[in-house]
Design a protein around this nucleic acid. Sequence first.
DNA 1: TTGCAAGGTTACCAAATGGAAACTCGAAAC
DNA 2: GTTTCGAGTTTCCATTTGGTAACCTTGCAA
Lengths: 121, 121
Amino acid sequence: MALKMRRNHAPQPPGECALTLCMGVIGGAWTVNVIWCLRAGPRRFSELRADIPPISAKVLTARLRELEESGVVSRLVKPTSPPSVEYSLTDLGAELVPAIDSIVSVGHRLKSIRSGRESAV
Amino acid sequence: MALKMRRNHAPQPPGECALTLCMGVIGGAWTVNVIWCLRAGPRRFSELRADIPPISAKVLTARLRELEESGVVSRLVKPTSPPSVEYSLTDLGAELVPAIDSIVSVGHRLKSIRSGRESAV
DNA sequence: TTGCAAGGTTACCAAATGGAAACTCGAAAC
DNA sequence: GTTTCGAGTTTCCATTTGGTAACCTTGCAA
């Protein structure tokens, strides 16, 4: 006899999925790291590269352009010599910080779980 | 004159980055959707497929295996006929739910911003 | 007049990823 | 007999990613 499909008591709302939409914005490689590095104030391109050593210039540029496009960061060119560019979070971007906070917390738990697992082996 | 590199007032802690670690766990396609569908209780494989129509069996299997491996979901085979398999969140998995909640909230803001942008065009 | 800094861009390449569709397996229902 | 169901697995393929490295521009400084 076929099993009954139980109704999901926590269904996803119909239409475009808000979760999938937002993950499209923050899901790329290094994206959350960039937002995380901007949480305490504006940073320049080369500062971000130093903050996140493994990121390449190409990917950092791509992420910043995407985040600008989606309204998460803003870009300000300053007339220094040579000109420098400051990136900062918009209000929308600031809303992402608590979400990333929670992810970081779980990351810490994962770290402790994994180090415990190692020492047990 | 070279610009001074400003100290990041919110630096990432040295060593393995908790953020990158956790994103490695939840970063795959559909991963957060799966966790989200499990937040209200256990679901079977085919229920999850129905919950998330665009996911393929291959990817759903892969995600569930990874999440099991990282301790986020648990897998229980029930001796029905044919045997059915129930997936549920572990305690660690439950900790991810608030993070995903926050992401969903930002997703809703993105939706309203984008629909506003459309109607303005 | 050469060189460096800042902030990129471009071309090329390899690996990883995800989708589609077909196939498996054991029991049970028709 | 053979079809169905749940839960996958397997194969093949196209696309998407991301990395590397070289190159560009402008103005100032040595």
